[in-house]
Simulated assay, not measured.
Amino acid sequence: MDAFTSFFDSRNRWNYDTLKNFRLISPIVQNHLKKVYFTLCFAVVAAAVGAYLHVLLNVGGFLTTVACVGSSVWLLSTSPSEEKKRVTLLMAASLFQGASIGPLIDLAIQIEPSLIFSAFVATSLAFACFSGAALVARRREYLYLGGLLSSGLSILLWLHFASSIFGGSTALFKFELYFGLLLFVGYIIVDTQEIVERAHLGDLDYVKHALTLFTDLVAVFVRILVIMMKNSAERNEKKKKRRD
């Protein structure tokens, strides 16, 4: 998510004139995007392995979350020249992230195993559509949304903080869930265009860019899965009431 804070950073030298520049994506940037999405696919596989390990061995929890954050910070602090090390750190962070959401996946299996596949398909379609829309759109067309999304994320964090202290209602939970989903779908669009712009400016760090998109992908997947679980539980309750 560092793309949005850096969007307004003067070091990027972006002004009104650069925002009007809508050149086509160059072959170098296209090749960079291929590396980003290819690496992202492997990160998703590593996350799936981590989730599977939790289902088998119950390894996911606070420690894997800390390990995921630590691996990500280590990756971002490592020189881009150490490519193999950074890719390894990305796979480790993805593995730990998968294990961290393992309890949620385990709960989904108990409710209805097909929900996991449905949530994954829905997430993949949403990611492909919105990331693709960002690529085919005019350059920098959606970058202005970065500030709005950052403000929305701050509102979401404050709401979550307030509900954890004062207690939350069902309506507030639904709002946080759907509003959070909307925010991270927006992040997919803005992050994709931010990656393209950084690549045009010479930043070809595909590992860091894959980590950014992976973070968005996981956030969307978790929220879609929770929504599906909630809807499935409500349907099951209605069926039980009808039987009684």
Rank of each mutant, 00 (worst) to 15 (best):
F4S: 14
S6G: 14
S6T: 13
F8S: 12
S10V: 10
N12P: 02
N12D: 12
R13G: 07
Y16Q: 14
L19V: 09
K20Y: 04
N21G: 03
N21Y: 11
L24I: 03
I25D: 07
I28M: 09
N31D: 15
K34A: 10
K34C: 04
K34G: 02
T39L: 13
L40H: 08
A48G: 15
Y52K: 05
H54K: 06
V55F: 06
V55W: 00
V59Y: 03
G60N: 03
G61L: 10
G61D: 09
F62Y: 14
C68T: 11
V69C: 13
G70L: 06
G70P: 09
G70F: 08
S72I: 11
V73C: 00
W74Y: 12
E82G: 08
E82L: 15
E83W: 05
E83I: 12
K84S: 14
K84H: 12
R86H: 08
V87T: 10
V87I: 15
L89W: 10
L90W: 02
M91I: 13
M91W: 13
A92K: 05
A92P: 04
L95S: 01
L95E: 01
F96W: 10
A99L: 10
S100I: 03
S100G: 08
G102H: 03
P103Y: 06
L104H: 06
I105L: 00
L107F: 05
I109M: 14
I109V: 14
S114L: 00
F117C: 00
A122I: 01
S124T: 01
L125C: 10
A128T: 00
S131L: 04
G132W: 02
A133W: 11
A134P: 14
L135V: 15
L135C: 13
Y142R: 05
L143V: 11
L149P: 02
S150C: 02
G152H: 09
S154K: 08
L157F: 12
W158V: 15
W158Y: 13
F161G: 05
I165Q: 11
G167A: 10
G168N: 07
T170Y: 09
T170A: 13
A171L: 13
E176N: 12
L177C: 08
Y178N: 11
L182Q: 03
G186Q: 04
G186N: 12
V190H: 11
T192H: 11
T192R: 08
Q193S: 10
Q193M: 07
I195P: 09
V196L: 10
R198V: 00
R198W: 03
A199R: 10
A199N: 08
L201F: 13
G202S: 06
L204V: 04
D205K: 08
D205G: 08
D205S: 07
T212G: 13
D216E: 10
V218R: 00
V220L: 02
V222T: 02
V222I: 06
V226L: 06
M229R: 00
S232Q: 12
K239R: 13
K240H: 05
